[in-house]
Write a protein that binds this DNA or RNA. Structure first.
Lengths: 402, 402
DNA sequence: AATACTTTTTAAAAATTTAAAAAAGAAGTA
DNA sequence: TACTTCTTTTTTAAATTTTTAAAAAGTATT
């Protein structure tokens, strides 16, 4: 029954998409987004109203004439399960058709290196069962996580290897809901593009400030994934001749100087050498602590963060030369203290960038906070609304018949 | 009269484009390229045959059934004036609708720093007059040159500044033919994408090996220009802490270690210090000499080129991490000795790239030789066939009425 | 109340595709 | 060689989709 209802929606995927991203739109807006004429947009809207997916939402303003009608999706017709993973946890939340989080955000903890596909599957099942949402009204599951992810294939080459299937196939088969997989930074970039301060900009670089420094690129309005879905490995660009071994096996990656892992190592070293710092009072020193002490004003902590940020800025200078972006967005967990990063980054840009280029690039600190990745994972499902989702649905159907 | 004929063509621009790039195609091919149905493609073809722009060209092979008809543009209906500039010259050639060079390639020499727009205009007029081609059958002029070029605006921020107009407006107005402007490396990338070994690859980095190291990026099948047309400044990515001042005013650009300018400087220094090399026998040492001596086997020259190439490879390693391209093409003048560059570049890639990434990226030495830029300048006009060209034609018409 | 302007609806026109029939070629068989 | 069968391509005509253009409806200003 409900599967039929999703099939029905797929015919109107472009309209659904732009309404999901924009909450309320007029028929003229939708005509613009979909590239179809206004009578066409109106016809689609009426069809969707008749079937109960869209409702009228009062009038928008006009510059002096008849006021246009506003339309919006009805929130509770379908749901998306959004999953945002990092090294140590998976956060899950149920999202409705208006991009509202309609359940508590549940957090499952683990170490991603030890995580087995089956464990993730159990978490997903448990979360769905407890959510009170019927499985058949869930359009899809969007999962984002660190590692080398090929979204098209549905594989994470770094973590969660399944023996003879892709990770997406595995979950999809067991749970009978379409699954989409993306890199965490890609998801964050998607969130920023659709719901953040960088919305409507055509070429944007979104930095995911966390343990590493992830990058999601929006080029010509679309997430850029490269030829094999592996683009954006900003963290591992070979930038330094420091001889430091990186987790990736190479030497001198940006990450070896600019990540919070590197910062923590430097901090510990400094304390051992007798550096005067409020950090010395703590037994266990981690990145969160350094950040919070920096915010409180500890000079050593500030210097450490600043140095890392300066190195990030050096990397960004390269990125600006190559991509000439409209904006660079600082997002991800680290962006909560975005101001701490900003000045040193600017400093590095000023030193290393051709002025003609920098003057076109805005720097933006995200306002999506820690929600970015969850918003992005849900948006991942919406992005694939249409043909991709349809394919997955038939895959699932075929599987259940066998 | 002929203007009407170009107007007519513009209605069928997508068909014209793919035939220009592919010489002969079947109606099924054209249906694929244009995204329209086969009956639609056939209708367009017949219309164009009726008007004398396209002809049938025998049969293509079939896997066992009726053989499909081949179609091709008729070469001599219209022409494109292709202009390829570098620091010291402008080469011009007339190109027909089948991408044949139908005149001698004429070379005008100057120093681009001193070049005035009027001088370029005179060269263009002279070349057209001597070509024997009537102005009205020239679809457009494609000009590519070094510098910061914004193709959309039609400006070169570095050279050939016109007081109160854009360079494109200026030439177009004086000569009454649509003009398109692009960066030299962009043109070369376009040539490689359409006629080179990288044809049909979706994500390709094209290196323009010359005095500097230019870069043209093909992303998702399209030339990528960034937010302001300034993307691809590979030559000036800040990569070294060598303190060397670059022509751009910054320090440590890739260019300061990897360009032929840098190589020449190092060579002179070496000779002064008594380095044993066949270069020492020459009074005037320039890049061409070093290359030719390297080809002949002079160890010092080989080492110099190798070092430069290795540094280019370091830059490419960064590019691969960021863009995950399907291929990197060595093109431009320097590609004639492409093998000289290849080994050290590979070496650098092996040292600085994550294997997972490199295994997907092919290295290709261009087979377009010195013709790449001219092919690309002509292709620039073809690329803009359709709406852009139409706009320029009306601009010109309006101008001539005033 | 008149008018100026914007949005929505309607109906006719145009564009495009679908699906089926016809045409043409290749391969196998008697 | 003649004939059959299987393919693939081309043509045709009907069906569908989409747009255009004009009329109608609604809002604000004077």
């Amino acid at each position: 029954m409900s599967a039929h209802r999703i099939d029905f929606l797929l015919n109107y995927s472009e309209t659904i998409k732009c309404l999901y991203y924009n909450n309320v739109l007029t028929s003229a807006d939708i005509s613009n987004y979909t590239g179809k004429s206004i009578p066409h947009a109106t016809r689609v809207l009426n069809e969707l109203i008749k079937e109960g997916y869209i409702e009228e939402k009062g009038f928008a303003n006009s510059s002096g004439g008849r006021k246009p009608l506003n339309y919006s999706l009805i929130a509770g017709t379908h749901y998306i399960l959004s999953v945002a993973m990092d090294q140590f946890s998976a956060q899950m939340v149920m999202v409705d058709m208006k991009n509202n989080f309609i359940t508590e955000t549940k957090r499952y903890e683990f170490n991603i290196h030890d995580l087995q596909p089956e464990m993730l599957l159990n978490c997903l099942n448990e979360f769905i069962d407890n959510s009170g949402i019927t499985k058949s009204s869930i359009i899809g599951i969007g999962i984002s996580m660190p590692g080398f992810v090929d979204t098209e294939k549905g594989v994470n080459y770094t973590y969660l290897n399944v023996f003879d299937q892709t990770l997406v196939e595995y979950i999809q088969q067991k749970i009978s809901i379409p699954v989409f997989l993306a890199n965490d930074s890609t998801a964050i970039a998607l969130a920023e593009q659709k719901f953040g301060l960088a919305a409507n900009l055509k070429n944007v670089m979104v930095l995911n400030l966390g343990w590493g420094i992830g990058l999601g690129m929006i080029l010509n309005d679309k997430i850029f994934r490269g030829n094999n879905g592996l683009a954006g490995e900003f963290s591992h660009i070979p930038l330094f001749k420091n001889g430091k071994l990186c987790t990736c096996g190479k030497h001198g990656c940006l990450e070896t100087e600019a990540s919070l892992i590197a910062v923590t190592a430097t901090a510990k070293e400094g304390i051992k050498k007798g550096q005067i710092t409020s950090l010395a009072a703590y037994e266990d020193i981690d990145a969160d602590l350094i950040i919070s002490e920096a915010v409180k004003g500890d000079a050593f902590s500030v210097r450490l963060i600043s140095e890392a940020a300066y190195h990030v800025g050096e990397g960004l200078a390269i990125l600006i030369h190559l991509m000439n972006p409209a904006a660079i967005v600082l997002s991800g967990k680290g962006s909560i203290v975005g101001n701490l990063w900003m000045a040193p980054i600017q400093q590095a840009i000023n030193e290393h960038c051709i002025p003609r280029l920098t003057k076109y690039t805005k720097f933006i600190i995200s306002n999506l906070n820690i929600k970015a990745q969850l918003i992005g994972s849900a948006a991942l499902v919406v992005e694939n609304f249409g043909k991709n989702l349809e394919e997955k649905l038939t895959e699932i159907k075929e599987c259940s018949l066998v």
